[in-house]
Design a protein around this nucleic acid. Structure first.
Lengths: 105, 105
DNA sequence: TGACTGTATGTCAAATGTGACATACGCTTC
DNA sequence: GAAGCGTATGTCACATTTGACATACAGTCA
């Protein structure tokens, strides 16, 4: 995994169980995290494309600016449920969500 | 929506806010629930295909038989996170997960 | 019939996720 | 440099999800 991505994960609050200085994720954990990163990027893309602020998106979702920021950062405290529901509410189709998830990193 | 699917949702614990006798879901809620149903079906398919019992799958996941049963039933108490993580642990690729999610109902 | 295996369903304490808030940061404009 | 706007980050009370357990249900075999 490239360094930039690792740093991004680290700063997003992903923890590692061992004492090494590298993020040591199992293949499944890595796949899950990358999947979340893809959704996070897409969420931001949709927002920027529509020229919305995070606060405006939050209002649409019935959430808060800070949570939207965390979603876009793929913060460890946000669930896949929240991200997928958010995309659907913002008008993204189920099949498009699937495409985003399937897309190779 | 066809009746069989509605019954399945109802018995899976999905609630409806109004007093009508039909499940009244917004388009986004419906898409989300169907997405979960697709994952639930796929989860069972993987298990059956490999001739595993729910208990065996539970052990692999570090979970319990009852939770696996709930996953396969797309119970309202199970998260997308749990379902997706489970599929990944069972060896399903990220892109295959995407395909399952994207697949039209 | 009873024993056994596998699945479904209800409950619960503990773990995790939530919106909201405060506040920090970065940038632009005056 | 102060004010304004948008985004990031830490915290918290409250809500939801979790594995585990008990138990019910369905099928098979002897």
């Amino acid at each position: 995994m490239e360094k930039a991505k690792k740093d991004r994960l680290k700063s997003a609050g992903w923890r590692v169980g061992d004492a090494t200085e590298f993020l040591e994720l199992s293949a499944e954990e890595a796949a899950f995290v990358e999947l979340k990163l893809a959704l996070a990027d897409y969420l931001r893309e949709i927002r920027v494309r529509n020229e919305w602020t995070q606060s405006q998106v939050a209002r649409r979702l019935g959430s808060s600016q800070s949570r939207v920021a965390k979603m876009e950062a793929a913060d460890a405290s946000v669930s896949l449920d929240l991200m997928v529901k958010s995309l659907l509410i913002l008008g993204v189709s189920r099949s498009e969500v699937g495409r985003v998830i399937a897309k190779a990193a």
